[in-house]
């Protein structure tokens, strides 16, 4: 027979488990879905010792991430992402160069650094999307 404090402890465990299940189920619903339409953009990627320029990349669901992935398919380089529940997709590797604890892939649109996740940032026809590999979060998009 359980004592009163043991019953209380059991109740706390049940409530905590329910809270955990609710949180894990609710978080994906918080992810924003950007508006979907088409665009044609340029994508430039500055890796360590290499540069890829993909011009006139036509995309549906016009976001920075889709532009990068479409450029990857068109120009034959790979793009790896990791999905974080509640936050969206993080680009972790481009053309075989992976991010790590000290180096990251950052993006900018028309010379302005990204302020949201790449899967949330909408792009428009004529935009220039730049990705660069850096160890400095405050670095600015490189020029041509």
């Amino acid at each position: 027979m359980l004592s009163k404090p043991q019953k209380a402890a059991l109740a706390v465990i049940v409530v905590a488990l329910l809270a955990m299940a609710s949180l894990l189920l609710a978080l994906p619903m918080l992810e924003k879905k950007p508006a979907t339409y088409s665009a044609v953009v340029d994508v430039k990627i500055f890796g360590p010792g290499w540069v890829i320029v993909a011009e006139d990349v036509g995309i549906d669901n016009a976001t920075v991430l889709v532009a990068l992935q479409t450029a990857g398919r068109n120009y034959g380089f790979n793009v790896s992402t990791t999905h974080y529940t509640g936050m969206g997709d993080l680009v972790t590797g481009i053309n075989g160069t992976s991010g790590n604890m000290t180096h990251f892939w950052l993006y900018g649109v028309n010379g302005v650094s990204g302020d949201v996740g790449a899967d949330q940032k909408v792009v428009y026809t004529g935009d220039v999307v730049v990705w660069w590999y850096t160890d400095d979060f405050s670095s600015q998009p490189p020029g041509d």
């Binding site: 404090p5 043991q6 209380a8 402890a9 059991l10 706390v12 465990i13 409530v15 905590a16």
Partner: peptide
């Protein structure tokens, strides 16, 4: 904290 704490107590 409540989950592990209660579990430990039990």
């Amino acid at each position: 904290i409540p989950l592990f704490g209660s579990g430990y107590m039990l």
